[in-house]
Simulated scan of single mutants.
Amino acid sequence: MSLQSAKKSYKAIYTYLLITIALSTVVWLLTLNAGNTGRIGGRIYGYGIMWCPALATYITCKLLKIKFSGLAWQWGKPKYMIWCYFIPLIYALISYLIIWTFGWGGFYNKAFVTQAAHELGWSKLPQSVFIILFFIVEGVIGMFGSMSTALGEEIGWRGFLVPELSNVTSYTKTSVISGVIWAFWHYPLLIFGNYNEGTPPLYGMACFTMMVISISFVFTWFRLKSNSLWTGVMLHASHNLFIQAFFTPITTNTGHTAYFIDEFGVVVPAMCLLLAIYFWTRRREVVNLVTV
């Protein structure tokens, strides 16, 4: 890459990050001011914060005369999308099987299952049958809602930031830098808000940070390999859906469960670290694939 092209990428990265922080700060303050936001506030502010990276990308493109339509909107090869759907499901399933097997959390949360069955009007079904049907319905229909929020972040992180970083540095550094930025972007709500599942703040932040940086190796690999931002959307949506909407709520507390489950316990981040190591060993497969 020429020095001029590198300067353009650095300028794009810095501009994007400054605008993302500025926009996100507004939503952070609104969220923190609301306190315990509840269902309505959580939905509105949740969508708001997750779409800040997308809006920042659009503004950056306009300011720097970059084609917003050139952000790898193409769907790409179906095999990559299939893998991006199933990889989070696989590592989430393995993580929670470990948790349930060692008694760090219990299977299953009868109160959650009963409430969910009542809300869906499926109370007459045997709970074992309901759990299977609920898993299938969430895994199919729930993906549309999950993708609608994940898209906002992924337009920014993998649609814009990752390819710009890959223009000026290696796959490994792109994964680490984008992962650190992505993790830090969550810190205001982790530190001052209620974005945690009950672990001490420092412990939860450490687990969350390890998970985000580790999983960034997977996100970056698929983004560069497929040249499609939709791989990030699929990975992100699948991760959020299966962990937050199924495995965590269906797990019972056996005493210290919060230290092991979800994004703020140790098991899922450990699985993501193993995945990061695996995809790092395949880093040469994505060298110089992106020229945007």
Rank of each mutant, 00 (worst) to 15 (best):
N167S: 03
F135D: 05
F217K: 01
G232I: 04
S214G: 15
G198R: 08
F217S: 08
K124M: 14
N196W: 09
V218Y: 02
F219C: 06
P163I: 01
E164D: 09
R223G: 09
P188Y: 13
Y171C: 06
F208Q: 06
K225W: 04
N194M: 04
I132Y: 10
I213H: 01
T174Y: 07
L151A: 03
W230C: 05
S170R: 00
N196R: 05
E153P: 02
L189R: 04
Y203G: 09
V168Y: 00
T209P: 09
I191C: 10
F208Y: 06
L224Q: 05
V176K: 02
F217Q: 03
L165E: 03
G198N: 15
N196I: 04
T231R: 01
N196G: 08
Y195F: 11
S123L: 11
N167F: 02
M211I: 11
G142D: 12
M210Y: 11
M147V: 09
F130T: 08
F217H: 08
V129K: 13
L189E: 06
Y195W: 08
G159P: 02
F208E: 03
V129I: 01
Y171P: 04
G159S: 12
H186R: 06
F130Y: 11
K124E: 11
S148W: 13
N167T: 04
S123A: 13
E154Q: 02
I155V: 06
S226L: 05
T199E: 01
Y195S: 11
Y203Q: 14
S170W: 01
K124P: 15
S123W: 03
N227T: 14
Y171E: 06
I131D: 03
I191Q: 15
W185A: 08
L125W: 15
E138T: 15
W182R: 06
M210G: 09
M143T: 15
